[in-house]
Each structure stands twice: as structure tokens, then as C-alpha cells.
């Protein structure tokens, strides 16, 4: 609740604030315009499509600069030829015939099995 005293002091002080001299008013006006001018560049940067485009292009160029030398080095360096060892069992495994060539005992057992009644 506002008392009459509070109301009176508020009116007096507000009236006092309105009674500024011209020079002070002018300086306050200039200060306000200076502050408002600061709104512009920040807004323009946030709105402009150049910022994301420039950022994307810059990132692409940076990535190319970083990746290109390593890619070139990789293509120029001699590639070691892998030594491939082939197991004889793999070669003879087709058709299942190679198993008997390797193991004479198994071959003999198979022969006995064929002659048995």
C-alpha cells in the first residue's frame, strides 16, 4: 500500500527527473543512439547467409588441406605385396580325392573296407 508520503515523494522526484537541462537531454539522447547502434552489427551477422556459407567453405578447405597430403603420401608409397601361402590340402580338396593321397594308412583301410563282405 502506498502512503501519501510515498506518493508525494514519487511525484516530486519524477518531476525533478523531467526537468533536465538541454545539454543533459542531448547527451542522454546521444548515449541512447550510440547504444542502439550497437544492436545493428550483431543482428546483421546473425542474419546474413554469408556466415554459414563462409564457415562451410572454410571447413571444406581446411579438411582438404589436412587430408590431401596424407592421401598423396599413401598413393606414392610402395605397397607391400602380401605373401600368400597355399595349403596343399586346400588345392586337393576339390572332389574329396586329395585326402587319400596324403594318408597311406587311410588309403589301406579304405581298400580293406571295399573287399570285406
Amino acid at each position: 500500500m502506498t502512503t501519501p508520503f510515498e506518493k508525494a515523494t514519487r511525484e516530486w522526484l519524477r518531476r525533478d527527473a523531467e526537468n533536465l537541462d538541454g545539454q543533459t537531454r542531448s547527451q542522454l539522447n546521444r548515449a541512447r543512439q550510440t547504444a542502439l547502434a550497437e544492436l545493428q552489427p550483431r543482428r546483421r551477422w546473425g542474419r546474413t547467409p554469408f556466415l554459414p556459407l563462409t564457415a562451410a567453405a572454410g571447413a571444406a578447405v581446411l579438411a582438404a588441406l589436412l587430408l590431401l597430403p596424407s592421401a598423396m603420401n599413401r598413393s606414392l608409397s610402395p605397397v607391400p605385396t602380401p605373401v600368400v601361402t597355399i595349403d596343399e590340402g586346400d588345392l586337393g580338396g576339390a572332389g574329396g580325392q586329395g585326402l587319400f593321397d596324403e594318408d597311406p594308412t587311410l588309403f589301406a583301410l579304405a581298400a580293406v573296407g571295399e573287399t570285406a563282405p
Partner: peptide, 15 residues
């Protein structure tokens, strides 16, 4: 809106 606000408040702020 910001300009209106500053214009409205500046004299009392100065006081």
C-alpha cells in the same frame, strides 16, 4: 521497442 524503453527510462536513470 528498445528505443522507446531507453527514452522512457533514461531521465530517471540519470537522476
Amino acid at each position: 521497442a528498445m528505443e522507446r524503453f531507453l527514452a522512457e527510462v533514461e531521465k530517471r536513470a540519470y537522476q
